[in-house]
């Protein structure tokens, strides 16, 4: 299939685990360079949506395209960076150093037998520095705190300089200061390199401040558009109630980026 402007295209996607419906008639297109924040209550199908996009699951009905190719047949993995909600690594004795873990992010660009060379180490250092963890590079991953580990995993997801970065609740273990720094970096990369970003988050304020698009999911698409249009939408007022919508739209007000951008609230 020919490459399109849409990085992701979901067309009338239905998905169930056995008889439990998880997603129902989900459709949206995401253009190159967009920063999409996905929000919704627990069990609303956010992670399933990501797993469908990545071809881990196949929808019962509907089509999903990734860079114009059917998600299930997608092979250009070097174009994607991914940070899952949970990693299977759980052993605190895991004997790999931070630099070895970040290096794994480069493997999608390498042919077999995959090897890490000296020039790769410079790129790894650049991303370790970007996330403020360069001094941890010789440490073992199991020795790090939750926040430090998360930064290592983010560096791993981004070291490949992907065109599409998918993050499933990336900031859960981060302290507020690191979280701010992380989102600033994401926004900068999104702006300068036109990297498309999809991020699941429970922090709706983040979406108002950083994301260009918002998807509110509750098994179906409740809302897809800009945060501003969400706040102005009468349908959303009807869905959430005026008070709840007002609260959602004001929760991002801890920073001043949105104020500067839209000059309201």
């Amino acid at each position: 299939m020919k490459e399109t402007e849409n990085v992701i295209s979901m067309q009338n996607v239905y998905f169930s685990y056995n008889s439990a419906e998880v997603l129902s008639g989900v459709s949206f297109d995401l253009k190159k360079g967009a920063f999409l924040g996905i929000v919704g209550p627990n069990g609303s199908g956010k992670t399933t949506l990501i797993r469908l996009m990545l071809g881990f699951l196949k929808p019962q009905i509907g089509d999903i395209y990734l860079f114009g190719q059917p998600a299930f047949l997608f092979k250009d993995w070097h174009r994607i960076g991914y940070l899952p909600q949970k990693t299977s690594f759980s052993d605190n004795h895991f004997p790999a150093k931070v630099k070895e873990i970040v290096a794994l992010g480069l493997l999608s660009k390498k042919r077999s037998p995959k090897r890490i060379f000296r020039e790769d180490l410079r790129i790894i250092d650049k991303y370790l520095d970007l996330f403020g963890i360069i001094d941890l590079k010789e440490k073992f991953i199991g020795e790090l705190s939750g926040g430090q580990r998360q930064r290592v995993l983010l560096a791993k997801a981004m070291v490949n300089e992907p065109e599409l970065l998918i993050l499933d609740e990336p900031t859960t273990a981060l302290d507020p200061e690191t979280r701010e720094r992380f989102f600033d970096i994401l926004k900068e990369i999104n702006n300068k390199k036109a990297m498309t970003i999809i991020m699941i988050t429970h922090d709706i304020g983040t979406i108002g401040r950083y994301a260009s698009n918002m998807l509110y999911l509750d098994k179906r698409v409740i809302f897809f558009g800009t945060f501003e249009s969400f706040c102005n939408s009468n349908d959303m007022t009807e869905y959430f109630g005026e008070f709840a919508q007002h609260l959602i739209c004001h929760r991002h007000d801890t920073g001043d980026i949105y104020k500067k951008s839209y000059g309201r609230i």
Partner: peptide, 23 residues
């Protein structure tokens, strides 16, 4: 093990991320 060392390390660390890296 020498030939597939990086792949084995990645899968041991995190199978899902390894899959998205084309392994």
């Amino acid at each position: 093990i020498i030939i597939f060392y990086q792949e084995l390390l990645f899968i041991t660390f995190d199978e899902e991320s390894a899959q998205v890296s084309g392994i």
